[in-house]
Amino acid sequence: MDPAQKAANLAIVTAVGAVGGMIAQPIAGLLSDRTRTRWGRRAPWIFAGALLAAGGMVVLGGMTGLVGIGALYLLVMVALNIYFSPKAAVMPDRVPRGVRGLFSASGGLGVLVGITGGMGLGAVLSGTPAVGYTVLAVVIVLAAGGFALFNPDHDNRGEPRPPLQWTAFLRTFWVSPGGTPTSPGASSAGCSR
């Protein structure tokens, strides 16, 4: 690939991945709401997302062309969001409201340590990307597998599925800036009265 186009290529690939992840996350959450298995509704998605992301990362390590890298990066981002969305939904499903702050802090700590540690790990393994991706793939499968294995959910096969309402789902993508009390426009309008 052309080294002069490196920044532009990176921007294209990460933008495509971000859009894919943005679309995949709520869809994964919606589908997991309706999933009925002996392992509950979240664990199969968490584990499947981790496996898909791990496979994508291993293949991504060997890619050289922009299209291939873009496609694999998109796959990894979609898979990570398939993992993350049902994982986040475990908190309202299973954690009492009184201690959710603690769980939120635990998740937040994972974000901070993960981003920083990931950048460090990437720097250390940047000379051998294939090894780096393999290490990440193993870590993500262990994290998802441990979460699902050591924290089993109820068998929910007997529960009714909520009706699938695509129009209501699509409306969740829209947040009215004027209708949000915390938006700058709303608060300044409130101050001027």
Partner: peptide
Amino acid sequence: WYGVASLGVYLALGAV
């Protein structure tokens, strides 16, 4: 494990 599961995702995001 909730924290570890977050860590796994963001470790991958940070490195990739």
